[in-house]
Design a protein around this nucleic acid. Structure first.
Length: 330
DNA sequence: CATGAAGGCCAATTGTGCCG
DNA sequence: CGGCACAATTGGCCTTCATG
């Protein structure tokens, strides 16, 4: 029984409006509904609120007072009061993980077999007509999402509907992909450090544009207190901040004096940003955070590589979402 | 077998009003 | 004010199902 049906039944039986916490309590007491959530009353409140908002006068419910809901009697006969106490049910994906762990013996299983096993073991309950499809769609969706996020998925697709766990083979493909991507990050950083000044400038310009800079103006070489780029950082079309960017293609740490120098070169109402291919010394970080002075934003080589990859600059995404170096750069 | 839209559900976030 | 409790809304994930 859905939460709404259960709530409706409780209200019919009560014959008067009740607060949603009271409704929830009665629903649970009578076993009309169970919740896996931590705050079931919030769920009930949300369900009824949304229903009223969506259906207006046609809703079975109405708001009698803030947080208090009543029901309209429709058709006279109350819904059948058959409580159906259900065992706690795992999510399909958690169930699949358990089945694979316990019963697959390290071999990929077909999703239909996984689903049947999960149902047999009562790990999951469903009212749907095609639990197998649900299971497989869920698994594939999760794999994709994790890959997109650059995380290691739980499940591995073997094709033809067969699915396994990635943890079965810690040296397997996904781990190799991880290692590969890590290595590419290294190499991308290397390439940035060694590429020609012009190519580097373009790369930084592209990156700044992608993360929200507008009106990017590259300051001609030197003589400007070291400021390389001036631009406007736009957030949500509303907030605009003038930024002065100093780029240091250094292998060694950027030291505190550089931070001071940049701060000294800022125009009125300008914020400062220092980008380096290396990193910052502790002193530099401290100087950048000085509470009584204009804060200076710092981006080190690692962060820069992450942003480049995130925005697909200088890298190619292969069909398997391998991150690889772009050819012909430099 | 694979994909995507639609809708349900939950928890987190945001809004509101009250009280000291 | 600002801290608190409660209410309302939102965002993200899950499930289902129709369709390539």
């Amino acid at each position: 029984m859905s939460a709404l049906d259960a709530a409706y039944e409780v209200l019919l039986a009560a014959g008067k409006p009740l607060h949603y916490r009271e409704i929830t309590q009665r629903m649970l007491d009578r076993g009309l509904w169970t919740s896996a959530g931590l705050t079931p009353w919030d769920s009930v409140n949300a369900r009824i609120t949304v229903d009223i908002k969506k259906n207006g006068d046609r809703s079975r419910f109405y708001r009698a007072a803030p947080g208090t809901f009543g029901c309209r009697e429709i058709g006279g006969h109350p819904p059948s009061p058959e409580p159906d106490p259900e065992p706690a049910s795992l999510s399909f994906l958690d169930a699949a993980e358990i089945v694979l762990e316990e019963y697959a013996g390290g071999q990929p299983m077909h999703y239909r077999d996984i689903t049947r096993k999960a149902l047999d073991l009562h790990l999951i309950t469903t009212e749907g007509l095609t639990p197998e499809s649900t299971m497989y769609a869920g698994i594939l969706t999760e794999i994709q999402r994790q890959i997109k996020r650059g995380e290691l998925p739980r499940f591995e697709k073997f094709g033809k509907g067969y699915v396994g766990l990635t943890r079965w083979h810690e040296r397997g493909l996904p781990y190799q992909i991880e290692a590969h991507n890590r290595e590419v990050r290294e190499r991308l950083l290397q390439r940035i450090r060694t590429m020609g000044p012009i190519a580097f400038e373009e790369l930084v310009g592209e990156l700044l544009a992608k993360i929200g800079f507008e009106d990017v103006a590259v300051t001609r070489a030197s003589g400007d207190g070291g400021i390389d780029v001036r631009g406007t950082l736009v957030a949500g079309d509303v907030i605009q901040t003038k930024m002065a960017v100093q780029v240091k293609r250094w292998k060694n740490n950027v030291q505190a004096p550089v931070v001071q120098q940049v701060r000294g070169s800022l125009g009125a109402h300008e914020q400062g940003l220092i980008i380096t291919t290396g990193d910052f010394s502790a002193g530099a970080r401290q100087e950048a955070e000085q509470p009584d002075k204009t804060p200076i934003a710092l981006m080190n080589g690692k962060q820069m590589v992450s942003l480049l990859i995130e925005h697909d600059i200088g890298v190619l995404r292969t069909n398997y979402d391998l991150i690889d170096l772009e050819e012909g750069e430099e």
